[in-house]
């Protein structure tokens, strides 16, 4: 376990370094002069020079890169061109909203996926099973930028039950939560079902049944507990995926999170803020994945990581 941990942490270094490097080069992908694009052609040349100096764009690429690393090392993601506030504090202010939404979406996904997945595996080939599997495929095929507006139409416009946008009360969580969580519930349903189907065949389940345990105990204690182990991994990995999904979902529901911030930064051509958001989201994703892997190794002692 300890060597596995060490290896995972060591592998993290090149990944983080690579992510930072890619994000650094983003600004250099801008066709033409980045300063022109950011400030517009009409900006005065003294403004342009100031920004060029501020972003160190007047220096050689290598020096710029070192500046970038140095700043990051001090927890400085630069300043927003628009508000002139530090990027990091702008992001941190929005980030809890994104996390809350992601947790809520995950809750919804689990509430749908656990009963559907378990039931369809226990009653394989039944109508419920077929229905759940159809739902699962439908769920992954429904793009969130369509599902969101559809939900607004149904629940806010037609039925007038739920608010359209913003984040003021608990009711505001429901529509964006479903929009973000439905696709995941589909993935989880399939995962839970196939994992349960596999464990159902195991000899220890047969043994539990042979020694006369009640079916309820066989399912709850012997099948389910083992079947849910791989599900933990998927939940972790998918949680990171929710961060990316939040970009579109937050835009649809005007949710004050980091996803909408990213889109706003893009339309305002506030590239330091775009860089900061992309870097922040992907580093969170990497850390969540690491945590998931370690948790997996911890809760399942059978797993031997030799590589």
């Amino acid at each position: 376990m300890r060597s596995y941990l060490a290896r995972r942490l060591l592998l993290l270094i090149p990944v983080i370094f690579g992510v930072i490097t890619l994000v650094f080069f983003l600004i250099h992908l801008i066709p033409g002069d980045p300063v022109d694009i950011m400030l517009g052609e009409t900006a005065s040349s003294s403004d342009k020079e100031t920004l060029r100096k501020q972003l160190h764009l007047d220096e050689p690429l290598g020096a710029q890169y070192l500046h970038f690393l140095n700043r990051l090392g001090h927890g400085d993601l630069g300043r927003s061109l628009h508000s002139n506030r530090p990027v990091l504090s702008t992001i941190l202010k929005r980030y809890p909203n994104t996390l809350e939404l992601a947790f809520f979406a995950m809750l919804i996904a689990l509430l749908i996926a656990l009963p559907l997945g378990i039931f369809s595996a226990l009653k394989q080939h039944s109508a419920v099973d077929t229905g759940s599997m159809f739902f699962a495929l439908l769920g992954v095929s429904l793009p969130n930028f369509w599902l969101g507006p559809l939900l607004i139409l149904l629940f806010s416009v037609e039925l007038n039950l739920l608010p359209v946008s913003g984040k003021e009360g608990i009711l505001d969580f429901i529509l964006p939560g479903i929009t973000l969580g439905l696709g995941m519930s589909a993935i989880l349903t399939r995962m839970i079902r196939s994992s349960l189907l596999e464990v159902k065949q195991k000899e220890y389940v047969l043994c539990a049944r042979a020694k006369g345990l009640a079916e309820y105990r066989v399912v709850m204690k012997h099948t389910l507990r083992n079947a849910l182990i791989p599900v933990v991994t998927i939940v972790g990995l998918q949680f990171g995926g929710l961060l990316a999904g939040s970009i579109i979902t937050e835009t649809i529901f005007s949710w004050p999170g980091i996803g909408r911030l990213t889109v706003q930064a893009i339309s305002a051509r506030d590239y330091p803020l775009v860089q900061g958001c992309v870097l922040f989201i992907s580093l969170t994703y990497v850390l969540i994945n690491l945590g998931t892997d370690l948790l997996y190794a911890f809760i399942d002692p059978r797993i031997q990581y030799q590589k």
Binding site: P14, I16, I281
Partner: peptide, 12 residues
């Protein structure tokens, strides 16, 4: 490959 996989979904 790991670096590219570190960007979730369509973020990149």
């Amino acid at each position: 490959v790991d670096v590219f996989l570190a960007f979730p979904g369509i973020l990149l």
